[in-house]
């Protein structure tokens, strides 16, 4: 009796072990296949990109630092002029930062509305939630450059097209992130306010906003960092600010590299500065959360 059950148990163990090994093997096979497909995709993708590029990877790799070296050495030779040049381009830098700041501000207000209107439990018109979600998806999907170029055609160059373009994208992006936060908001204060006869905007402003504000501000600061980069890039396609000056300075070519160098340094310093400041404040805002 005991023998039988023991042998049955050992058989059982063997079969469990066999099926476990089979499972492990299958997992390894799938993992290996996924890795293989991934490697094939990467290698062939790289080859396609290399073939369709004007200059090849292996020719160019040695020359990557030629241009920065030229710019920096020329800037270093004329280092006495650098402070003057930086002062000259400082207004353009301020314009770039202003574009980013205003568009973040407008975008955050838009994202706030979109998030309240598109979150279950908070929406003023619950039936329109999908509509507002789609609106924020589409606003997020349109790259800034598309709107900026169209607006430049209509309004002419300058900061306003870039501002509108970045604001639209920011509203969509923040709308999604905000609504993820708002979904977790406690609804009891809202109910309490509703029982006192508060209007929808009062419920949002006094019931929901205080709960979500630290996260909202943190996301907005992160977006501000991103938008400084975006506004510099849009300047490069004609929307004013430091990017526009950079394109002009680069078009002059050798001999005027010191101007490009000064702009590089300004842009680098600005991005690093705002990165550090905003990450400090973001850490402080979200401290003690998520525990």
């Amino acid at each position: 009796m005991a023998d039988i059950s023991l042998s049955a148990a050992s058989q059982n163990v063997e079969s469990i072990q066999a099926s476990y090994m089979a499972q492990v093997q299958r997992r390894r096979l799938y993992g290996g296949l996924t890795l293989l497909i991934f490697i094939v995709l990467m290698v062939s993708g790289f080859n396609i990109a290399d073939a369709r590029n004007a200059g090849g990877f292996w020719d160019g790799i040695g020359r990557v630092f030629d241009y920065p070296a030229d710019v920096l050495s020329e800037a270093w030779e004329k280092r006495a002029d650098l402070p003057g040049l930086m002062a000259k381009y400082f207004p353009a830098l301020v314009e770039t930062i202003n574009i980013a700041a205003v568009s973040t501000l407008i975008g955050a207000i838009g994202g706030l509305l979109l998030s309240f209107l598109g979150t279950r439990g908070l929406a003023k018109w619950p039936r329109l939630i999908p509509l507002f979600r789609r609106i924020s998806d589409i606003m997020r999907a349109v790259p800034e450059i598309v709107i900026a170029l169209m607006l430049i055609f209509v309004m002419g160059g300058g900061p306003v097209p870039a501002m509108i373009a970045i604001a639209i994208h920011t509203a969509g992006a923040l709308g999604k992130m905000f609504s993820e936060v708002a979904e977790n908001a406690d609804l009891k204060p809202v109910e309490g306010l509703a029982s006192t006869g508060a209007t929808w905007s009062q419920r949002m402003l006094l019931g929901v906003l205080p709960q979500v504000l630290p996260n909202y501000v943190s996301y907005t600061l992160l977006r501000f960092e991103i938008n400084i980069r975006a506004s510099a890039i849009l300047g490069f396609v004609g929307a004013g600010g430091i990017g526009y000056e950079l394109r002009n300075a680069m078009a002059w070519g050798p001999g005027r590299f010191d101007e490009a160098g000064a702009i590089f340094i300004l842009l680098f310093a600005t991005i690093v500065f705002f990165d550090q400041v905003s990450s400090r404040y973001r850490n402080r805002l979200t401290e003690g959360q998520g525990q």
Partner: peptide, 15 residues
């Protein structure tokens, strides 16, 4: 932006 500008000098336009 700066990386793009720098790399375009070395590799030329393209993906």
């Amino acid at each position: 932006l700066i990386w793009t500008v720098v790399l375009a000098r070395a590799f030329g336009p393209g993906p």
